[in-house]
């Protein structure tokens, strides 16, 4: 869907020119707060209280419809005004990951890869023991998010683009039921 990069959309105006983003932002009742496309992985964050089970199919349909067309699903990222600060944030977050997060999660055979920082939102991918781990969300929200809030307070959010279903060696198994 998007070769060689990541594109983040935080509002409907960002979506203009990217058919996939336009289609997902237009889904009634979804109230998208964030959409991230990284390769063939699409991450949608919603404000709506409607459960994913109720709106997930519409997202899938939007993806399939967009891919059926010849036009690129996602336009290249425009150079944002905040690019410099995102670059600076990237450096700071990368340092936190290298010096603190990864040495810690390595104890469970895991690692966390910083994919990009866009509009002060960190995109990451988990691997090794973290991928598919039953505690991955705890690591992300209670651990990494808290660390970044302290050490890089300019970070506005954090998005996990990991395909957890493909994790072959999770440290903790998923819930039984």
């Amino acid at each position: 869907m998007l070769t060689g990069g990541v594109r983040r959309f935080s509002e409907v105006d960002d979506a203009k020119g990217s058919p996939l983003a336009e289609a997902i932002f237009a889904i009634p009742g979804l109230a998208v707060s964030e959409l991230i496309v990284s390769g063939n992985i699409v991450t949608v964050v919603k404000r709506s209280a409607v459960p994913w089970q109720a709106v997930g199919k519409a997202v899938g349909s939007a993806i399939r419809t967009t891919l059926a067309s010849d036009a690129p699903a996602v336009a290249a990222s425009p150079k944002p005004a905040s690019a410099v600060s995102d670059d600076a944030l990237y450096e700071q977050v990368a340092r936190v990951f290298d010096e603190q997060v990864n040495p810690m999660v390595a104890r469970h055979g895991g690692h966390v890869e910083l994919i990009d920082v866009q509009d002060a939102v960190v995109m990451l991918r988990m691997g090794g023991g973290c991928q598919g781990c039953g505690m991955a969300d705890v690591t992300l929200r209670q651990g990494i998010e808290g660390m970044l809030a302290q050490l890089v307070p300019a970070v506005r959010g954090i998005v996990d683009i990991t395909d957890h279903t493909s994790g072959a060696n999770p440290y903790f198994q998923a819930a039984k039921k």
Binding site: V138, T139, Q142, G143, I144, G146, M147
Partner: peptide, 20 residues
């Protein structure tokens, strides 16, 4: 605000003692 308690220590507990 949430504190998650587990029987095995999270690898990040030292980094967020209020949350883990």
């Amino acid at each position: 605000e949430l504190t998650v308690a587990s029987e095995q220590a999270s690898t990040l507990e030292a980094a967020n003692p209020a949350g883990l």
